[in-house]
């Protein structure tokens, strides 16, 4: 892999960074047991995708990517509100945040 001698940053660097962050999010989602940490891993994945949107918006010279990532942020905000309310309810009913212990539908 030869890095071309230019002043700017190659677009691929942004995409690779996004891939690394997304993978970290997946890893956190799979390996962590705390519901809140799992939720935060999802947010990390959303952020990684946002970076891709913005990088491609720059490459293509359009700001549609910015608008998409704006929508992602709004949806993430809504998701966080509902998700955290669900976590609060779970904690109220089961007194635990371990995701493995919340595997039955009935309490």
């Amino acid at each position: 892999m030869s890095i071309p001698l230019v002043i700017g940053v190659p677009l691929s660097w942004y995409l690779i960074l996004s891939a690394i962050l997304f993978t970290l999010g997946v890893a956190g989602f799979l390996f962590r047991r705390n519901i809140i940490t799992v939720f935060m891993s999802i947010e990390l994945m959303l952020n990684a995708v946002n970076l891709t949107f913005i990088a491609f918006a720059n490459k293509l010279g359009q700001n549609d990517g910015h608008i998409f990532s704006f929508f992602v942020m709004v949806v993430a905000a809504a998701e966080a509100a509902v998700g955290l309310a669900i976590i609060l309810t779970i904690f109220k009913n089961r007194q635990t945040l371990e995701i493995d212990e919340v595997s039955t539908l009935k309490n």
Partner: peptide
């Protein structure tokens, strides 16, 4: 995990043209 990242990096490097660099201040639609 490393294999996953390496595969993605490889694909990104192969698909993208090498000239696609990003310069600060070149994009004004943001």
């Amino acid at each position: 995990l490393f294999a996953f990242i390496a595969a993605m990096a490889y694909i990104v490097q192969r698909i993208l043209p090498p000239s696609g660099e990003v310069k600060f201040g070149a994009f004004t639609l943001g």
